[in-house]
């Protein structure tokens, strides 16, 4: 369960996030949708505690991301945008490193690592060094790494970026499996169709503000539009977005 309450973030003079609020419940997939530079990544970075909000609060499973950041990270698996792997380590070693850092108990560590390798279907590349992996392979290893401590909350920043059709489908299937296990999944994207097809709840962000949020149907009703793309454009124009 992720809760964001009126957070603000400045970078110098740029007011990147100006009062974003939403919540992402367990057992559902919540999608942050917005044009480039809308503040999606900044919002997610606040959630996985790499950035501190200038104002407002956010919590994961009730743990405040600023005052209890270590506890919040413990129940979260994050896949930041463009996650890099260690090229001299094999896929399995990359995952094992994260498992150890997350404090997975010694007697369970092999079981857990092998389990996640199975889940992400990367057995065939598990013992190869990650140097030279394709984007799809890299994303799957990075995701395995982020999920190895079995977190309840999963934050994915543009996870399908650079993936081909097959890899995207595989990832979508995996996200749905995680949802069925009762996980709270929050992902960002600037691709409308993807969010529409996958997410239960949609939060449209533009200009650092929430333009509209709700299920796909809610958003269509609210904007009096027939399809999501039109609804998206209508919604972000309300925030004064100027393209």
């Amino acid at each position: 369960m992720i809760r964001v309450d009126d957070i603000h973030k400045h970078f110098g003079k740029v007011h990147a996030v100006r009062g974003v609020s939403f919540s992402a419940p367990n057992g559902r997939i919540t999608g942050l949708l917005g044009p480039n530079g809308a503040g999606k990544s900044t919002t997610l970075r606040v959630l996985y505690t790499v950035l501190k909000p200038d104002a407002g609060a956010a919590s994961i499973d009730g743990k405040d991301v600023v005052t209890e950041s270590l506890e919040a990270r413990r129940v979260t698996g994050a896949l930041p945008h463009g996650s890099g792997l260690y090229p001299h380590l094999s896929a399995r070693e990359n995952i094992l490193y994260y498992a150890r850092l997350c404090g997975v108990p010694r007697n369970k560590i092999d079981e857990q690592v092998d389990g996640i390798i199975e889940l992400l279907d990367i057995k065939d590349i598990a013992h190869r060094r990650t140097k030279g992996f394709s984007q799809g392979q890299r994303t799957r290893v990075a995701l395995a790494r982020a999920l190895v401590h079995d977190p309840q909350n999963i934050i994915l920043d543009e996870p399908t970026n650079g993936l081909d059709v097959m890899a995207t489908r595989a990832l979508r299937k995996l996200i749905l499996t995680l949802k069925d296990n009762g996980r709270c999944i929050l992902l960002s994207s600037h691709v409308m169709q993807e969010v529409g097809a996958l997410c239960d709840d949609i939060v449209i962000i533009a200009n650092g503000q929430v333009a509209i949020s709700g299920t796909a149907d809610d958003i269509l009703n609210d904007t009096n539009c027939d399809d999501l793309e039109e609804a998206f454009v209508t919604a972000i124009q309300r925030t004064g977005y100027d393209d």
Binding site: R45, Y48, T49, V50, L70, E71, R73, R74, T76, A78, L79, P80, G82, S83, G84, L85, Y86, P87, Y98, L101, C102, G103, A142, R145, A146, H149
Partner: peptide
Amino acid sequence: GERERGSLEPLLALPATRGRL
């Protein structure tokens, strides 16, 4: 190097004390 490779951010998102890293 970690920052350039993009591996620093996921590392800092882990439940580990940063000073110890």
